[in-house]
């Protein structure tokens, strides 16, 4: 009585296929994919749409993004130049203290945004992870890239501020890409590590918030390295400079603002010692990738 015809292919006898004719093997999810173009398109477009949201999502847009570092800068600047007199008239290395401070804050803001943003990133994108096949590393990387967009804009503000304060363009400004690259690798390594760990340890977020605060004070944002040397001695300074963020900030202060402040290499006790923070960054990056890569195939199941 059925009026609908269902065409059924004849039941086939067991067939043996040569695996070469079967196309590509289906692999489980991973951190990376073979298709690097897709990997980049995904990372870029996720970061871009997030950025668009923040940029155009509110009336003030980018100004809000800038507001936080600027307010922090304002408070610290007023306190340390007008009240505690850390940054005024104590020798040539304190020249352009404002630009030094603002730039350090902007670099720190990138670091904090990229890492704290990455902590929850994979878990927060659970619907995507559980329902679409795509290289998992895209998620934390897009968070870092988003922070990178903001860093780019903020650095322009810093340069304008510097020029107004009286900083003159120098040849050593060409070091900026290297400085930013070291910072980006540092932040990316941590982002991968944190995003993977958060899947298993849900208290990573408060822990990391505290660590970020500690890092803020353990880096030359407010206190110049010369103070660390004066108060604690050269060994302490060396240890202090093993923090890659300290290297990044100090080199920024030296190369971008004021040659009178010591370079990162000088603080470490010689150019050869620069290898130490670089190794630390490299090791963290490798560890972060290793952990993320190991957990990526099971993330969808463990969320």
């Amino acid at each position: 009585m059925s009026l609908e015809l269902v065409q059924v292919p004849p039941a086939s006898p067991p067939v043996v296929y040569s695996t070469e004719t079967l196309g590509r093997p289906i692999q489980g999810p991973g951190a990376l994919s073979n298709d690097w173009r897709r990997f980049w398109h995904l990372t870029y477009n996720i970061a871009r749409s997030e950025w668009k949201l923040r940029f155009f999502g509110s009336a003030l847009g980018y100004l809000w993004q800038l507001m936080r570092p600027l307010l922090l800068f304002g408070v610290l600047y007023v306190f340390f130049t007008k009240i505690s007199h850390v940054g005024a008239g104590q020798g040539p290395s304190y020249d352009f203290y404002g630009t030094q401070l603002l730039g350090s804050i902007v670099l720190f803001t990138f670091f904090a945004e990229a890492t704290t943003g990455a902590v929850r990133s994979v878990v927060d994108r659970e619907p995507l992870v559980r329902k679409i096949q795509f290289p998992r590393l895209v998620i934390p990387l897009s968070v870092v890239l988003l922070a990178g967009f903001n860093l780019g804009l903020n650095l322009i503000v810093v340069i304008v501020f510097g020029l107004i304060e009286g900083v003159r363009p120098m040849l050593s400004w060409l070091e900026l890409p290297l400085i930013v690259a070291l910072l980006a690798f540092f932040a990316t390594g941590l982002a991968m590590l944190l995003a993977a760990l958060f899947v298993y340890f849900r208290d990573m977020q408060p822990i990391w918030d505290v660590v970020t605060q500690v890092v803020f004070y353990a880096s030359p944002v407010i206190i110049p390295v010369t103070e660390v040397l004066k108060q604690l001695g050269p060994t302490a300074l060396h240890l202090y400079m093993l923090n890659p963020l300290a290297v990044v900030m100090q080199q920024y202060r030296h190369a971008m603002v004021n040659h009178a402040t010591p370079s990162a290499a000088a603080c470490l006790g010689g150019t050869a010692h620069l290898i130490e923070p670089v190794v630390i960054v490299g090791a963290l990056f490798a560890l972060g990738f290793y952990v993320f890569n190991r957990t990526a195939p099971y993330v969808a199941e463990n969320l």
């Binding site: 695996t19 196309g23 559980r130 329902k131 969808a300």
Partner: peptide
């Protein structure tokens, strides 16, 4: 490809 498998193989063409 959202979940990995423990054993066995799959192909897609």
């Amino acid at each position: 490809g959202i979940y990995g498998v423990d054993s066995g193989r799959m192909w897609v063409n």
